[in-house]
Design a protein around this nucleic acid. Sequence first.
DNA 1: TCGTAATCGAGACGGTACGTCCGGTCTTCCC
DNA 2: GGGAAGACCGGACGTACCGTCTCGATTACGA
Lengths: 213, 213, 213, 213
Amino acid sequence: MVLDETSTSTKDVGTAHAGLEPHAPGRPRDEVREQAILDAALELVAEVGYDCFSMDSLAARAHASKATIYRRWSGKAELVVEAVRRRNCDDSSITPDTGSFRDDLLAFLTAMIKVVAEEDVALLAGITRAMRLDPDLSELMRVQVFERKHEETSRLVARATSRGELPGSADADLLHEVVGALVLNRLLLTGDPIDVDFLTHVVDDVAMPLLHR
Amino acid sequence: MVLDETSTSTKDVGTAHAGLEPHAPGRPRDEVREQAILDAALELVAEVGYDCFSMDSLAARAHASKATIYRRWSGKAELVVEAVRRRNCDDSSITPDTGSFRDDLLAFLTAMIKVVAEEDVALLAGITRAMRLDPDLSELMRVQVFERKHEETSRLVARATSRGELPGSADADLLHEVVGALVLNRLLLTGDPIDVDFLTHVVDDVAMPLLHR
Amino acid sequence: MVLDETSTSTKDVGTAHAGLEPHAPGRPRDEVREQAILDAALELVAEVGYDCFSMDSLAARAHASKATIYRRWSGKAELVVEAVRRRNCDDSSITPDTGSFRDDLLAFLTAMIKVVAEEDVALLAGITRAMRLDPDLSELMRVQVFERKHEETSRLVARATSRGELPGSADADLLHEVVGALVLNRLLLTGDPIDVDFLTHVVDDVAMPLLHR
Amino acid sequence: MVLDETSTSTKDVGTAHAGLEPHAPGRPRDEVREQAILDAALELVAEVGYDCFSMDSLAARAHASKATIYRRWSGKAELVVEAVRRRNCDDSSITPDTGSFRDDLLAFLTAMIKVVAEEDVALLAGITRAMRLDPDLSELMRVQVFERKHEETSRLVARATSRGELPGSADADLLHEVVGALVLNRLLLTGDPIDVDFLTHVVDDVAMPLLHR
DNA sequence: TCGTAATCGAGACGGTACGTCCGGTCTTCCC
DNA sequence: GGGAAGACCGGACGTACCGTCTCGATTACGA
């Protein structure tokens, strides 16, 4: 399975190199256990932070033994990175189309917030320091949490431009940068809630003016 | 001085009721040691993060005994909070006046960056998770790092408005929010350098358009 | 052998109830570590003395963690005593046979002194206080240092009695008690050297008169 | 300097060897404090034992500062020794005279035991190690605890000799050595109680036979 | 009547060791 | 292979004592 490729991560020793493997001796690993461990890892990072989460507590929460964990990953860092990478990405958020770019953007942001909220911000807060030490983890996290929305933002802007709602100079990248920054600012620094009022403020006071020149 | 008010922090017993205090018996606490400990604490939080810094390493770095530390603070949390609160705030940054609001803003941001940079971002990253658990610490940190610039930003905008450079509708609070968010975004999430190019981008692509409507 | 009984000392839980023990769960204790710790303890006691040796230095020298040490022994005293108890007891001191009881006794005491000397007296002095708090410890130490010689003393006296050198009333226990006491007196109280002159004095002025009535 | 004289303390109680001493400048030491400290030290040793009593607790109980203590004695051992040395030696133990040497000796030992018991043995045990490091201390302790009885023993023996109860060869020194050793042996090593049975054993099985040849 | 100098109680100081606990890893059982 | 249990090393924890130092206050001289 390709799964092995991902799971063994970076320093994969190259065990599963074919596909017709005659089936390794002994009992095969339980994929269910693997996923349970990764899920528990994400929960714990969100709850207590990267530095403070222990393999003991992970084992307890995932109902797995520490031996089972260390059989798959070499340590905490590798485990967390893979957990972040494999997060369930149900980007089922269909780009809305209300006919008005402003309303589309507001709807999109509202939907996004539901996904990012609490869950991600805790993860982000828990992993902030680790990110500063590991550029790969940093990049991964950034892409995971924010970059996914980039493409959709571009789609939204392009559609509005083609409809003549926005001028050709409208910069989707800038929009993405600024909106993302404002959201992050609330999430990590001020701690104020991310609600409809805030999003309306973002859209009307920042996004729209910027896109119209 | 108000400083005394703040410095005696949380557990101020309220002894200092005048200035003629009858003076406690025994050898007085050494303020120098206190400051050395707080300084070392900030360094350590910046270097290894809140969760990973140990009282032993703090004692070693501050050339203090653990007893001396525990005599003043009950534990790590209390100590770090006070360390953050008492940081040296040499806000000697005189508001620049080049005649052009754009240049003033750019100069101001450039100066600000020199202060915030590295020093604060490491502290911020180290303390991010702790902030989520302690709203007071969060608020403290926010004020410490960002809020101080709020007033100065307002001054800048007011001057430009009175000179007719900016319209009366120019919103200094909005400017502060957006600029701060963009900087934070770079500091914590993307990790890209905060240089002149970036600040020019912020001023010309975001700040100026927003202020002119 | 009964030796095992004694060796597990005080806190023997009594698990070894046959040989088919159902076996404790988890990783078994490492006998090698145990021995390494005991060896290091004896070295340290010899080098810096009982009271100047710290559990930290012991852990460092034995390349063991303090947890490993405290898992087995409750403290320094208990540990050192077991180290002493388990040290290789090359009681190879063959009972001498010169044909004369007096000379046999003198030779025996001389040999004994070489073993007990310095090494044990320092330990004895260091542990005296601990002995007063823990009767088991006291008994252990007493047996270690003095009781071993009891049997041999008895043998010596029995042989002399059967040869007609000593009257049937000769009391080996009394001999052992008095001689041991005199030696201890010098070791701990007066500090005078335990040399041939002293031993001769003990034999001629005390032991012989007592045995002959 | 006279300072050295006073500061070396221990072995020099009566510096006031005339009354015309040039007199040191500054405030003279308070003899009352000195005695209060020594008294408190003896109390503490009796209550918690030599090794469990701390200089802090001593300072607290004597209402003295640690500086005051360390100004006079260099450490715990020296202090305790002086406390012992200076304690009220109501050697009022009138040498008994029952008409029989055996009964006199037994009565004397019984009286002696009451004095030495518990109080001294704890001190002895606690200080054993310190004694090994400081010969002066050792000698002091030895004289304090045992030597005082030497003279009385001699008197007893002399009287019995003159009465014809004991042969002229009776050796009082030997008696003192052996009896002292046997008592010490019980006190420190075996821990068995020092009761009438034991003293009778000492007198009848050891002392009497030795004195009669 | 001062000034000097050493005392006093109180307690902070840097260190060191304590015994406990936890984290990450390894090692044994048994299924 | 998998789970459970627990030993392993390392190291941080907070406490206690050590012996020294530093306060302000006190106390005796000698000027």
